[in-house]
Write a protein that binds this DNA or RNA. Structure first.
Lengths: 91, 91
DNA sequence: AACGAGGTTATCATAAACGACAACATGGAG
DNA sequence: CTCCATGTTGTCGTTTATGATAACCTCGTT
């Protein structure tokens, strides 16, 4: 019983699988955010100013303590000098 | 004074430009949603069931009468058989 | 050790998303 | 025209994102 099998067994539970997938998506999202800010070379505070909000809110976003709206994501991206596209791909 | 110039002049107003960009983003988003549902060959009601919600909410989403959260977009995509990626590209 | 920059956390108020349900619109099939 | 499937709109209650502010943590620098 190694880790791989433990993981496999856990993920065979639909409930667990659903939560895992949500985490996956959330991580991907957060990484995109961090990546954009890094490429822009901005601190949370600088980004916050450009988004007309405060740095604590940026932190919340990047910590995954919230479920950002599309508008918020677009604002974040714009503040970092990016446009955003939603790209669906076959599961 | 043709349409092109009128548009150009209007968009030179930062305020107007910002609103225009928001519309652009919203249209792109909605088109992605409609496209995914079309490819999945689902009615709003079928999609709603898969998302554990009601068809009126799907309509609201697709009419742009709301600012969907990332989680909602992901649920929508999954229900259509897609994964979602957020792809930033230089403005 | 003291300071400051960058990030985190807590809390509050307000606006908005979301789910549910009902009523209505629309357009195609018979 | 009548049905029916599909989509739209209105409204209500609940949950949650968002903005604001303040306090706190963590390092690196001096």
């Amino acid at each position: 019983m190694n880790l791989q099998k433990l993981k496999a067994r856990a993920l065979s539970d639909p409930q667990v699988k659903a939560e895992y997938d949500n985490l996956e998506d959330e991580f991907k999202l957060i990484n995109q955010l961090l990546s954009m800010r890094a490429q822009a070379g901005l601190t949370q505070e600088q980004l916050a100013k450009r988004m007309h909000t405060s740095k604590s809110n940026i932190s919340r976003l990047e910590r995954g303590n919230t479920n950002p709206s599309w508008a918020t994501l677009v604002k974040y991206a714009h503040a970092c000098g990016f446009e955003l596209s939603l790209t669906p791909h076959k599961a």
